[in-house]
């Protein structure tokens, strides 16, 4: 899998190197993309964004995570283990060189994620009608906020997108005095503009 990804990235970079100097006048307002890093962690995401004005874009991302995604998070505390199952992330982007050009980008995003927390006290009611605690899994939804930075290449007449991004998301949980953090929306994305 990793070798295939590396090959794909090299191919796209080669395409970029061969790209003509003059950019076409066509501007695309819509973009869909997916993170090539996530399948390595048994996960997948899909992003849609809509260009607004000359430098901004708004979008929505949906991600479904597998077991291995916990390698990218520091979201475990005490005896409990958190596993984020899926996540919806509205985001806003600022393209420093404009949203129709190769550009550095800054992103802020919100997060609504479904989480399984293992090792937590779970209260249930037994057959006799009394409450009983067990140590088990509790599922719940939690909100978060993140920021990201990256660079986006536009290839093949600006229709093909290749971008690298680093993103951090917190759910405002504290580990002592430090906010929790996870590498969300981090990786290499490939996409299509239309």
């Amino acid at each position: 899998m990793r070798r295939s990804l590396l090959f794909l990235v090299c191919f796209l970079l080669a395409c970029f190197a061969l790209k003509a100097q003059d950019a076409p006048a066509v501007s695309y307002k819509n973009q869909i993309s997916t993170n090539l890093l996530l399948p390595v962690f048994s996960s997948v995401d899909l992003n849609y964004e809509r260009a607004l004005g000359s430098k901004f874009a708004l979008g929505l991302a949906v991600a479904v995570y597998g077991e291995n995604i916990k390698d990218l998070t520091v979201d475990s505390f005490n005896e409990a283990t958190l596993r984020t199952k899926n996540e919806v992330m509205p985001f806003a982007r600022l393209y420093f060189n404009g949203n129709q050009n190769n550009s550095h980008l800054l992103e802020i995003f919100g997060s609504f994620s479904q989480v399984d927390e293992d090792g937590r006290l779970v209260r249930s009611v037994n057959d006799a009608g009394f409450g009983v605690y067990d140590i088990g899994v509790e599922s719940y939804t939690r909100g978060g906020f993140g920021i990201g930075y990256g660079y986006r290449f536009l290839l093949m007449d600006d229709k093909l997108v290749l971008e690298g991004q680093f993103g951090l998301r917190t759910n405002f949980d504290l580990n002592f005095v430090v906010l929790n953090a996870a590498l969300i929306r981090t990786g290499i994305k490939i996409g299509y503009r239309f």
Binding site: N78, E79, A80, I108, G119, I147, D173, V177, L179
Partner: peptide
């Protein structure tokens, strides 16, 4: 703007509850 965003994240953390999970019931 960048400093504002970072400061906001840190300040919001000050008002967040600490999810201490110690498996005990009082």
């Amino acid at each position: 703007i960048l400093l504002g965003i970072l400061a906001s994240v840190l300040l919001v953390g000050c008002y967040s509850s600490d999810d201490y999970n110690d498996r005990s019931v009082q």
